[in-house]
């Protein structure tokens, strides 16, 4: 791999636990290379997060000079992982081993809080 691609500029990447779990996720209609043997229907996971005052203060300072708000990026990433893991938990309870057609949605329900929502179709593959 080219060193400049993996270099310092990509410093802020959280390795997700999601890909390590037994449940396979894709956002297309199938799991390539596998056959779907059973459908379990819709599974979903959601979480609502509020930012905390520390990141907010830092962000308002950052608002002057512009640039990435790392605190927010991290917060949203963690929340999305939480929503995904809830969805995965639901799929696991159904006895599925993959989720296809995964979609993500974001909405702001209250001032300073965001809802992250993940949904997909739980299936069993072979």
């Amino acid at each position: 791999m080219n060193p400049s691609f993996t270099g310092p500029a990509v410093a802020f990447v959280i390795i997700k636990k999601v890909n390590d779990s037994a449940i396979l996720l894709t956002n297309i209609d199938s799991v390539p290379g596998k056959t779907i043997v059973e459908h379990f229907g819709l599974v979903q996971g959601a979480t609502i997060r509020a930012k905390h005052i520390g990141t907010d203060t830092l962000a308002s300072l950052k608002n002057i000079i512009g640039g990435e708000l790392k605190g927010y990026t991290k917060l949203l990433q963690e929340s999305r992982e939480e929503a995904t893991s809830r969805m995965i938990e639901q799929a696991r309870q159904l006895g599925a081993n993959a989720i296809i057609n995964v979609r993500f949605a974001t909405s702001s329900v209250a001032k300073g809080a965001a809802e992250l929502f993940a949904y997909g179709t739980a299936v069993r593959i072979e």
């Binding site: 997700k16 999601v18 890909n19 396979l24 996720l25 894709t26 956002n27 297309i28 209609d29 199938s30 799991v31 390539p32 290379g33 962000a59 950052k62 608002n63 002057i64 000079i65 512009g66 640039g67 990435e68 708000l69 790392k70 927010y72 990026t73 949203l76 990433q77 999305r80 995964v102 993500f104």
Partner: peptide, 25 residues
Amino acid sequence: KMLPEVDQIAKSFLVTGSCVISIDY
């Protein structure tokens, strides 16, 4: 959504990336 030949595929998984960027004053 076009896929390569099915028998060539070893693995598939979901990848994500996100970024929050602020504008300057």
